[in-house]
Structure formats: C-alpha cells, structure tokens
C-alpha cells in the first residue's frame, strides 16, 4: 500500500513531517511493503488559491490510498474523500515515525476537515 505523508524537506524517511496539507513543500510517498520512499515537490505550495485541491489531485494521481498530515482543510478533505483516500492525523516528528505510528494503529483517522484554508 502506498502512503502519502506531508514533508517539510526532501530527506527520505527522516524528512520532517509538515503540519499542513495543501501548502506542504513536499509529499513523501512510502510503499509499506517495499519500504521505498519517494519525495515529490508540491507545486501548489505557492499557488494563489486551490492549493488543497491541487495537492489532493497529486496524492490521488500517485495512487496513494492513505494520507498522513497534521491538518487537512475543507476543500482538500472533500477531494480526498471523493478519491477514497483515508486521512490520518499525526504529530510525529518525521515521515518515518508517522508511518510507524500508522502501522502500530496509534493515529486517529480524520472524519471531518480540521484545517483552515489560507489565501
């Protein structure tokens, strides 16, 4: 299964977890079977508007089924839900720790948006 995690920098599983979804500088895509990790730059991070929607599109296009972040805004939540992508909230420090937490079952699943859109 492919998991997307919002990341502040491009440093594999050691990348720092970014607390916001839409404008996260990077997304880490982690394959839970092979443990392979790929970091993708978020081109929407500096978009004037619609960053959350654009980021959700990227997550879906890359085939991730689960997203881990600190917060997800209303439009991104709606788009990700439509894409059947599960969202989990983590306060871990790194991408690797967040993935471990998910597998241990210690992350809570998001059932409504918990972030606010930024202009």
């Amino acid at each position: 299964m492919k998991i997307a995690v919002t990341a502040e920098n491009d440093n594999g599983l050691q990348s720092k977890l970014n607390p916001h979804f839409g404008r996260s500088p990077y997304f880490a895509f982690v394959d839970t079977e092979t443990k392979e990790v790929e970091l993708v730059k978020n081109n929407a991070a500096r978009a004037a508007g619609g960053a959350g929607v654009s980021a959700a599109q990227l997550i879906s296009d890359r085939g991730a089924k689960v997203l881990i972040s600190g917060s997800v805004g209303p439009k991104a939540y709606s788009a990700l839900s439509s894409g059947n992508i599960e969202m989990y909230i983590s306060k871990d420090n790194t991408v690797g720790e967040a993935v471990d937490s998910l597998q241990e079952g210690s992350l809570s699943q998001l059932s409504s948006p918990n972030g606010t859109p930024r202009k």
Partner: peptide
Amino acid sequence: CVDFCEYNALAMMIDEVLVFPEI
C-alpha cells in the same frame, strides 16, 4: 478541463470531475 484550470477549481477523483465553485 482539470489540467486547464489555472485556479485548481477542478479535480479528477476516480474518473469523476469535482467542481470547487468557491475558487
């Protein structure tokens, strides 16, 4: 349409185009 939209007001999720009219 999704690729054309400059404002990210459209998204394609599981073969369905979503519209975000606010943006």
